[in-house]
Design a protein around this nucleic acid. Structure first.
Lengths: 204, 204
DNA sequence: AAAATATTTTTATTGAATAAAATATTTTAT
DNA sequence: ATAAAATATTTTATTCAATAAAAATATTTT
């Protein structure tokens, strides 16, 4: 039994997040103030701080919500699409980048990255990283499927490979959002270069 | 001929950076204020902003200086140390992590990462990224040497491989500084797992 | 030496973040 | 059902980063 106090807290929290999303879209991230969000949600500015810590924390809550959709979408979008690990990973990256930009501008994503690195052990950051882990597991599942189909050697460890591929993809994603110039095609090419080079190393 | 105005600017800039380093070490990053730095350097707070943009910008100037040392050191430290790409990369990572911690605390490094992602096209951030590129080239040179010694297949492209290895290493470095718990040994293990998994993929 | 130019400082403002005290609400115990 | 205890929010106040505009000052050029 959650109790009235608990429920009201959740209501308020959702109201703040919802109002913030509207303001971020209408006015942009920079021009949206905590006090503005608080006013529109009918609470005090301090309460917003108590709930989300920082302005970027409010944003993070929205990102988390939107990332859940991405994970669902990815499993379908990758199903039986390719036999090749390079193609699989670049396709994965392409979907991630497009989904990201469909929700938030690059400049806003930069704030997200900055927040999760500086406040890595806040509640919301931890949740963000959990979702990253789940994203890596999407790749792991695909690798397992390829292995069963005989397209990938039995010698490879799907878990470690999936995590490694996610790390590279993620590093390139961060590079993508860090620069206004770089297109998703640019990043796909860089990623392809990374993977081709790494896979050309065959050790005994 | 630089001119007096130019020279004084450089003096001031160096004085500010030097004073800031002392304060960061003595009082910690958080407790050091722009105004405090300005006072100690005998300039106005606005001037500090004009020169470095943000407080983290002052920090970045110090990081850049210290990173130059790292690059010199790496070339020597890796010379003829190993035949193996996994060992090479983990050793590289180990040196980078130890050098980083010998200069600044993790919590301060997080600010550096946050700054270069949010202000990716500021002057100082660009310089930071240039140094990252040079770090990648250290790996490239080592790969070329291994190739000449017949330890690495002629088929691999040293430039792309070096960049790819640096990306993975850097992603793990950021993970390292983002968590107080993770030791450099933890990260070395993760990196080894990444590389073993990637190198176990042998494509036609 | 005077004029033109560049740079810093002064002054002022906004907004994030945090802390402490005051107030209101909910929960628990009687 | 009510009083006491516990909990949460708001009010109030403060610090500091960041930015802008105008004024003051120093340097360079003529």
């Amino acid at each position: 039994m959650p109790g009235l106090r608990q429920r009201q807290k959740e209501y308020r929290q959702k109201r703040i997040a919802s109002v913030a999303k509207t303001l971020f879209i209408e006015r942009g991230y920079e021009k949206t103030t905590i006090e503005g969000i608080a006013d529109a949600a009918g609470v005090s500015g301090v309460t917003v701080h108590n709930y989300f810590g920082t302005k970027a924390g409010v944003l993070l809550a929205l990102v988390i919500e939107n990332d859940r959709q991405l994970i669902d979408r990815l499993d379908e979008s990758l199903e039986n699409k390719t036999d090749d690990l390079v193609v699989l990973t670049t396709l994965f990256a392409k979907i991630v980048m497009e989904h990201a930009l469909s929700n938030l501008a690059k400049v806003v994503w930069r704030e997200v990255i900055a927040t999760v690195t500086t406040n890595a052990d806040s509640r919301l950051s931890k949740e963000y990283f959990k979702l990253d882990q789940q994203l890596a597991l999407v790749l792991v599942r695909q690798i397992v499927a390829l292995q069963k189909a005989g397209k990938v050697s039995e010698r490879v460890d799907p878990l470690h490979l999936g995590k490694a591929l996610f790390q590279i993809q993620n590093a390139r994603f961060i590079q993508f959002i860090s620069s206004d110039e770089l297109t998703s095609a640019d990043i796909e090419q860089k990623l392809r270069n990374d993977l081709e080079a790494l896979f050309s190393v065959c050790r005994p």
